[in-house]
Design a protein around this nucleic acid. Structure first.
Lengths: 142, 142
DNA sequence: TTCTTATCTTGACTCATTCAAAATAAGAGG
DNA sequence: CCTCTTATTTTGAATGAGTCAAGATAAGAA
């Protein structure tokens, strides 16, 4: 679903108005997985130079709230976005360079979904972030 | 180890200079688990009104880098600190009010430590954040 | 085609956190 | 105990991702 028609479809199905800025933002997130807001703004500007950063922020926030995109924000990093949603996958982050990659958890489809003592919380999501050193940064060290 | 002597001990063992600001900050974090920086600054000021916010930030950063305190920063929230370190515990965060509680993972001592495909990353930590609604916010809804 | 109202543009603003330079004090060595 | 070096601290300004607000625009219902 990378085509413009496919993207408009997604917006309509989520009962959003189909606007140029929204189509451009969703296309940019799809084309640039794990991109931060600035990267998305730049990507959007390539075809639509007049779209404001506020529109991009608004769109990303709306998409996130509707579950169309997912926001990832590891400690000490700014927000990033991806369109791969709803499949309970997690992320590895490099402590050195911040590089980010997808991982599926080894424990099955719904890993770690239950805390031993939930303190009465109604838990609906377990977010896992793995921390380590990426291959490139390992190479730099040796 | 809540006593002033105990705190100075901790600083010395981590080869830090024992300064008034540092002792006060570490005492404040110990006394206020999960407190944010502003709360810690206020707590410090109660006994040491002249300590600057910069000293608090510096101390917290140093403590974190030496593993004496742990920084927690869920999506959309500012940083919080705790002295419970090295026991691989996780956190639940309330989506409504941001309330935060400790949880031990149900899967054992080192839960989720291995990703199915680590993309060549050298992983050293699996950080888990549970999201849900805390008891108080559940009560407000019903 | 018109009209309502959600969305966008513009530009100012917030606030947690960081930067930089001068002042201070921890603690090693004498 | 005193001096000296240099890590820390204070002070005050700056950064920057993200938000707010008001007027202008355009999506799409009728």
């Amino acid at each position: 679903m990378t085509s413009k028609a496919g993207i408009e479809q997604v917006l309509k199905e989520a009962s959003m108005r189909v606007t140029q800025p929204r189509v451009a933002v969703l296309a940019a997130v799809t084309a640039n997985p794990h991109a931060d807001t600035e990267t998305i703004i730049s990507a959007v500007h390539e075809e639509h130079p007049h779209v404001s950063h506020q529109a991009v922020y608004d769109s990303l926030k709306l998409f996130t709230s509707l579950g169309v995109v997912r926001q990832i924000q590891p400690q000490g990093h700014i927000a990033r976005y991806e369109t791969r949603v709803g499949d309970n996958h997690h992320h590895v982050v490099c402590r050195r360079c911040g590089h980010l990659a997808d991982v599926d958890c080894s424990v099955g489809a719904s890993p770690c979904l239950h805390a031993s003592d939930d303190h009465g919380f109604q838990i609906d999501e377990a977010e896992v972030i793995y921390w380590g050193i990426c291959p490139d940064c390992q190479a730099l060290n040796s």
